[in-house]
Design a protein around this nucleic acid. Structure first.
Lengths: 354, 354
DNA sequence: CTGAAAGCGCTAACAC
DNA sequence: GTGTTAGCGCTTTCAG
């Protein structure tokens, strides 16, 4: 509570007035140079920059923020999990935010936290951010927050309405559809689906994509299998499935669940992909090196993060302009060794790729 | 560049003066209540809190920071990779920082970035942080930054000296040693090591732990195998190793490399663990579900993050107090199915655990 | 226990 | 192109 941050002892921290004095200009000119404003002579600019460097001057963001209202940072609300998917997305968000010239604040909302998104956004707003990214993939109840900055919903539908709301998709629906279609194309009569944790939007999206693919082909929709993203839950589902000889194809909503599923199936004596094909979801490269190498779909986190942050920054910097439409991210199916035609099928053979 | 953040239209954002007016007290009293300072009557406290809630008052951090020098946030410099290890560590850092009552700023330093750590720390300092966590695991050249806040080096030796430097270990050395000893205990004459990416501290630590274990048993030290953490690099190493029949045990510096290695070995017709044992490093639970289930050591990211952040916060809040000594994190070996006694060995059988 | 005055370091207006 | 003046919203003195 009672904190004291010691200034470096001996020499005081230089302020803009010190730079101005050393450069022989006014403080306002220093400000202009540091903010890349026009109407500064080359000469003044050079002198100011030299003086700032000599003094080791560091602009005081707090002061700048106080007067300008601009913080130069964007806050992200994420789920504190270290899974390949969520971690990749965060990495790409950080990069996109930094490339756009903003700093990043991160607040995680551990699953089960009662404060949830609202509390996280609130804390971000209090700290000061020019925009908020909600990458929190969990369905919450009513979220009511008063936000006066633009909000980007990444991979989830808007959970609340802000002054300016933008959304960007990671394409879960289309990817789930592609994964299911791949299995159908191979000749499977239908495809079972091992879904992810119940409250995630991603789970819902993937179920819908799977359903749509089935419906489009007139395939029967088998009962849903429920997992929680973990390999252990995939394993549990696999044990149930192993005894059902009618199952020939499963689309798992996550790579790790697919791995657990395959493990259980093989333990039970079912061959993959000869008897049962399995497709994962995520695209973690390590699963190209297990047996069988996992067929999966890759989530375009890079594209999604870049596009989403682009839209957000646009909304921040040009409050009056229209937000350009978001384009759908690419669909990438990675066919490896865990999928093949069904046992009875005489058709085309599976493609093996890395 | 030219950014304008629109305040919510219609009603202005409430300030502390508004709260004071509504509560019938002075601004200073509002400040006292909001900062949990003593010497405020219960009555005043209640009134202020009610007024703040009614107005939806949000304290302006920038103003507070400007005058108090305290930002209430901690910055972390990380490597922007989505690997299980780095991602887990970041998640645990975030949690520890939040639990300590601070906000988190994140700056990644993509490998190969010339600005490197120094630039990242500089940007953090400019944004305003009360402390810095350097979780950047790469060996940089000379790093010179003027830091006037405490710095925590997590899993890496201090890369520069600040006013107050604290360190916390994730125990790489001890874990590498335990992994190697496990193999030696099984009866292997010696253990090969597949190292991680060259510039990482973690790589160095693990090599040293491996060497120490070998030396302690008087085992011959075979030439080092070089990887880059990826499963692909483990696979490449495995192809080389497969033809060398003298190899009976390999300690890989990462789970993913171990997976790639095993895959190559099996492709080449070598049996794991019957002919060659492999131990990984990280403890990603998914690898309990591959064949063979991977024996590995678990990195105690939770403990390390909590302890490190604790030390950092201590240094921030009690600049004059001694920094308590850091204790070594626990060593956890997870024995699964990828390790067994060497082919010729008649001794004890491998332990299988999940 | 409470309040009044001062000012943190910077940028927004407006002059020049 | 440049400088001057004012003030962002809060916490810190220091009196009461």
């Amino acid at each position: 509570m009672a904190a004291t941050v010691g200034r470096s002892e001996g020499s005081a921290v230089p302020r803009s007035a010190d730079v101005a004095r050393l450069a022989g200009v006014s403080r306002k000119t220093v400000s202009r140079v540091l903010n890349n404003e026009p109407y500064v002579s080359e000469e003044a600019r050079t002198k100011v920059l030299a003086a700032a460097a000599e003094l080791g001057y560091r602009l005081n963001q707090a002061a700048r923020t106080l007067v300008s209202g601009r913080t130069g940072s964007i806050g992200v609300v994420a789920l504190g999990t270290a899974g390949y998917g969520t971690a990749s997305l965060l990495v790409h968000i950080e990069r996109a935010v930094r490339d756009a010239g903003y700093a990043l604040r991160v607040v995680n909302t551990p699953d089960g936290n009662p404060a949830g998104i609202a509390g996280a956004v609130e804390s971000l707003l209090e700290q000061g951010v020019d925009g908020v990214i909600v990458s929190e993939p969990i369905v919450e109840g009513d979220v009511s927050v008063r936000v006066d900055v633009p909000v980007l919903f990444l991979g989830a539908p808007p959970a609340f309405t802000g002054s300016r709301t933008v959304t960007a998709s990671v394409g879960s629906y289309a990817l789930a559809r592609a994964a299911t279609e791949h299995l159908l194309d191979l000749g499977h009569a239908t495809v079972h689906h091992l879904a992810g944790a119940r409250r995630w939007y991603a789970t819902k999206d993937r179920i819908e994509g799977w359903r749509a693919a089935l419906a489009a082909r007139g395939a029967h929709e088998p009962p849903l299998l429920n997992g929680d993203w973990s390999a252990a839950s995939g394993y549990a589902a696999g044990r149930e499935l192993a005894s059902d000889s009618s199952v020939t194809a499963v689309f798992a909503a996550g790579d790790e669940m697919a791995i657990g599923l395959i493990h259980a199936l093989r333990e039970a004596g079912r061959r993959v992909p000869e008897e049962i094909s399995v497709v994962g979801f995520d695209g973690n490269p390590v699963f190209a090196y297990v047996s069988p190498p996992l067929t999966t779909v890759r989530q375009p986190f890079d594209t999604a993060a870049r596009q989403g942050v682009g839209l957000l920054v646009h909304a921040i910097e040009r409050p009056d302009a229209e937000v350009p439409p978001a384009s759908e991210p690419p669909v990438e199916l990675i066919v490896r060794g865990s999928t093949a035609p069904p046992p009875s099928h005489k058709g085309r053979s599976p493609l093996h790729t890395t």
